[in-house]
């Protein structure tokens, strides 16, 4: 049933050929060697972006909170590797038996990787949404966009208020 997902992954434009779009050394900040902790940022769409400012790559997840609400995830549709995305744009979908929900780009950038493990195990999104059930990696165009997202505290408050 994940054929569309595969299709999406396969149909990635030629951009996939890589090196040109990968972050190059010059993007590394000088202090990168001492920074190993990824920054966790959240969106009101219940997404989590785990951002490594050494590489400018963010890994996108849905939050535990979202996973719990969705129920059993049975299908995920992800963007093609190499696709350039605009903040706020729909880049895929997560489907449970109950319903489908869009995945929105939390920041602008380029998709550099998708989680192939979800091909066979969409359930990872339910069991480990903020871990092995990640969706894709985004090379972030403007790291200041990451800073403007919610931090963990603000997200928690948002969830509580939303209740």
């Amino acid at each position: 049933m994940l054929s569309a997902f595969r299709l999406a992954a396969r149909s990635s434009p030629l951009l996939r050929s890589g090196a040109g779009i990968r972050p190059t050394l010059k993007t590394l900040p000088l202090r990168s060697s001492v920074r190993t902790v990824a920054t966790k940022r959240f969106t009101k769409e219940h997404e989590l972006l785990s951002f490594d400012d050494a590489t400018s790559v963010g890994r996108l997840h849905i939050t535990e909170h979202a996973a719990e609400s969705l129920g059993d995830v049975v299908f995920v549709e992800l963007p093609a590797v190499g696709r350039e995305i605009e903040k706020g744009e729909s880049i895929g979908a997560v489907e449970s038996v109950k319903a489908a929900s869009d995945i929105y780009a939390p920041v602008s950038g380029t998709i550099t990787k998708i989680n192939e493990a979800l091909n066979d195990r969409a359930g990872l999104m339910s069991s480990a949404p903020e871990g092995d059930g990640w969706l894709c990696e985004i090379e972030v165009k403007d790291p200041s966009e990451v800073e403007s997202l919610l931090d963990e505290e603000a997200y928690k408050t948002f969830c509580e208020e939303d209740h």
Partner: peptide
């Protein structure tokens, strides 16, 4: 739909007044 509508909407969507097919969390 966005992930941000999911919790509420799923259930409604399941059996009640679902007008559009997809929602956010």
């Amino acid at each position: 739909a966005r992930l941000s509508g999911i919790i509420q909407r799923h259930s409604r969507q399941t059996l009640t007044s679902c007008s559009s097919s997809r929602r956010a969390l």
